[in-house]
Design a protein around this nucleic acid. Structure first.
Lengths: 200, 200, 200, 200
DNA sequence: AATGAATGAGCGTTCATTCAT
DNA sequence: TATGAATGAACGCTCATTCAT
């Protein structure tokens, strides 16, 4: 089925070219004509590859998550200690700040526009969130998915704040706070663990 | 003589009645006619009290912040220890989850829709953020505004995640994580402080 | 009936204060609120003195005509020759250009907005036109109302042209052309008259 | 492939079908829905071909001028004497009275509604006026553009007067007056010319 | 597969007019 | 008399979507 593969690839190319448009202006402020123009195709073509604007946006969200998770997995280094991993994670966030904030803008738009009643959207929401949690857990080498979930959530908070105006100084500061708190939290947990063993 | 005596007060009444509408559907999905209907007035009346839809929304954001900050200040209890304050704060968040998530929805919409080029919006953004930070710092009895800022940011992250579907179990969990990390962080800082003094 | 006289006078005061507003922006681009504001009264008061916006405008048109005709009558000088009268008329036009153009703007707006089906408007139109013709005929000391009518018409054309941008040089030129043509026309008629008499 | 092959041509078709609507009711009293209905298209289609209502109207004004000037040029007959040309011109005006009055209504609306601050409008105003002057000068075979300008202006006055109610008897009378005055004016000028030569 | 002209419901907004005070 | 808050029909305009080509 070579034809279908091509169409599939083309769909992804189109999605990736939409990223900036949606990130900068927001779902509601982007028209299908603007999308078509940005992609160098007609609106008709758009509707050939996507059922409608919402569907296009939902697919973009999935595509972003797919790529993010894959990229995070590439960064896993099994030889590092926990605190080294935390530091490395912090650095990844800072280095990719611009992209992550843009992706957050899109993700939040999806949070707010998607009708959760539509099963499709609920599934995307759940799946993507799960993927990020696992990716973060793997990257930090921790087992507790709930902690990974919290970390993801806190990062989203930090990214949110950068939406109206970028402030990289503040961003670095906030990331450092998160990493410091994580370190303190894990140290405390390790000590508690040791003490528990000592008692036993 | 006009029908409404205190226009200023009436404007606030109108704003407060808009809250749910904007929180549930989002700025872009609420029409002025829906607002008018929800308020039990005509669209014309809406435009008598507010310059336009954006202005109405910006004023709502400010009104929410004003009320939130005031409510937080009422909760300050100078007799509590730091860890008691942290626990109390966590409880406040959990008890008011429903309202806080709704307010976050509105706040995020403002983040994304407001044009920061318009000085007015930039000022609102700055002022409101500052007020929340101070309120949190006062509530926890800490001096470091930057930590308060981070806490506010992390809470926003937690609230964001509840937007598409409420999950109170998860919410409590995340708030507990935040509080645990805060506690670990402050303890570590206190120990470091003591050691520094000991050396000196 | 002193009260009624006062109200009548006040109505005229109000009308005269509307002149500039309607002349500058045109009937359709003036709102009743703007009128009220310019007059220093409320919209309610406006509707106390005038049935509606159209009525107010129609009364303004009549008031302008009343004043113009009266002013023209003041300028009649029975001792002048025809060519002196023509020259004097030209001078009056040039000296009052600014006002006449503004009045023409209003008059044209009435031409275009008034529904002639409404008897009231048709009457105003007829009456005012007749008054101007007589006033011009008297001023020039000519009997032929039809010539006066044509002169009035030609002047309206000249005034029309000044509406989008004032060009006083052009205005003077056009008035001079009109006066030159009138002079040539009357001279030719006088000669024809003499010849007719000679033959007889 | 789109449905309409020659968009430019279709735009002109649409413009020409708007003529009566604007002429009869005036710019401010015609809604975009009425225009669309009169053209047998949707409002959306209107905005596909024209930027907005003002732009549509401005293009209509230019289209009218283009056609009028072309039509006048077709009437030029180099074998006629001046007085024959004047008579012919008068006849053209009378024969096309109905159309000319309608066109004048549109032209006056443009005079009054166009914001001269917008360079585009100022240019249209200037260009169209210049074209009419040249067309009249060519038709009458005279060199003096200023006289042609005055004639155009006087005709506009005559047409204005017909706006509220058509009165063809009056129209013919006024046109005849204008032609008579023109004849008298040119004769006088010719005599003055001859005398000047005689002296020399 | 690709086009873009066409659609029309629905948007934010205005404003002449009313009427309780 | 005088007020101005309230009204709501109607405005100019937008844009996701369709479909003949």
């Amino acid at each position: 089925m070579p034809k279908i593969v091509d169409a599939e690839q083309y769909r992804r190319v189109l999605l990736n070219h939409c990223f900036d448009l949606f990130a900068e202006r927001g779902y509601a402020n982007v028209t299908t004509r603007q999308i078509a123009e940005a992609l160098g195709v007609s609106t008709g073509t758009l509707y050939h590859y996507f059922a409608n604007k919402k569907d296009l946006f939902a697919q973009l969200v999935e595509e972003i998550a797919r790529k993010d998770v894959w990229a995070l997995q590439q960064q896993i280094d099994r030889d590092k200690t926990l605190s080294e991993r935390i530091a490395a994670f912090g650095q990844i966030l800072v280095e990719n700040a611009e992209y992550l904030i843009a992706a957050e803008a899109i993700w939040l738009d999806f949070y707010q526009h998607c009708n959760v009643e539509e099963t499709q959207n609920a599934l995307i929401l759940q799946r993507v969130a799960g993927q990020y949690q696992k990716a973060i857990a793997n990257l930090l080498g921790i087992d507790d998915l709930k902690v990974a979930h919290f970390i993801h959530t806190a990062i989203e908070g930090i990214l949110c704040e950068q939406l109206p105006t970028r402030n990289s100084e503040l961003f670095v500061e906030q990331v450092n706070f998160l990493m410091a708190m994580l370190t303190a939290y894990f140290e405390k947990r390790a000590i508690a663990c040791l003490e528990a063993e000592a008692i036993a």
